[in-house]
């Protein structure tokens, strides 16, 4: 479904991605792990179209989207849950959700709202409150729900467990697993390598802008290099 070929990207003169090759098949949950500053977030942003690509190609359903605008990509079915959740703080929870469906007007939006509220009842309870007043865990639920409002075929998740209490982390990972079971293709970026590789069909390890390992999630968990560098074993 998603194919990345020889992708490079720069922030000013600093190169953050250097010839990354990666692919994600329909229905897969692919995890990308790596240290801080390895380029994980940059890679996701290149896919969602908010970070310019300096070389290489991104194909979505075989179609070249390397130069497509971010709003075009949302329409094609790519949605990103950004790092740090990025709420529209002063806007209400419900408005945040409605804006998630910005590219997809129509009466169906109300049904989707109800589905999100059923999944996360706390959001329904707080739907009139400014999103900025929610706790970190609630904001993460809102960020995921907001991205789902666009009916993405490919969901990009950037550090969904960051800054959350352990109990909430496992709740978020349960949600991710559930989404995968319902057929959403997911590209997950995580520093929590153990949890991320544990639920992944396949995984990639990124070091200073290059893919250094690629294998099934289970195999990577067993890999000596991954164990010492990312799992602290």
């Amino acid at each position: 479904m998603l194919q990345i070929e020889g992708l490079s990207s720069h922030y000013g003169r600093i190169q953050t991605l250097d010839g990354v090759d990666l692919s994600i098949g329909e229905g897969e949950l692919v995890s990308l792990v790596g240290a801080n500053g390895a380029g994980k977030t940059t890679l996701l942003r290149c896919v969602s179209g908010v970070q310019p690509v300096s070389a290489g190609r991104i194909l979505f359903d075989g179609r070249d989207i390397t130069r497509a605008s971010s709003h075009r990509r949302v329409k094609l079915g790519i949605a990103q849950v950004p790092e740090g959740r990025q709420m529209f703080g002063p806007l209400s929870v419900e408005d945040n959700l409605r804006l998630g469906a910005f590219r997809r007007r129509g009466p169906k939006v109300a049904d989707d709202l109800e589905r999100m509220y059923t999944r996360f009842p706390i959001l329904k309870e707080k739907r009139k409150q400014p999103a900025g007043t929610l706790s970190g865990g609630q904001q993460q639920m809102l960020a995921i729900s907001r991205a789902l409002m666009s009916h993405p075929r490919l969901l990009l998740l950037d550090e969904p467990s960051m800054g959350l209490a352990p109990l909430l982390v496992s709740e978020i990972f349960d949600t991710i697993r559930l989404l995968k079971d319902h057929g959403t293709t997911i590209f997950l970026v995580e520093q929590n390598a153990y949890a991320a590789l544990g639920i992944a069909t396949r995984g990639y390890v990124l070091e200073t802008g290059r893919v250094v390992l690629a294998d099934s999630g289970r195999a990577l968990l067993e890999n000596e290099r991954v164990k010492t560098a990312y799992l602290g074993l």
């Binding site: 179209g49 709003h71 709420m87 529209f88 408005d95 804006l99 998630g100």
Partner: peptide
């Protein structure tokens, strides 16, 4: 929704782009 999209853009430009605005 369009008015709110303008407000959303002023509060968080990155998130607005990711919503397809």
């Amino acid at each position: 929704l369009l008015g709110k999209a303008i407000l959303a853009t002023s509060h968080n430009r990155l998130a607005a782009r990711l919503m397809g605005i």
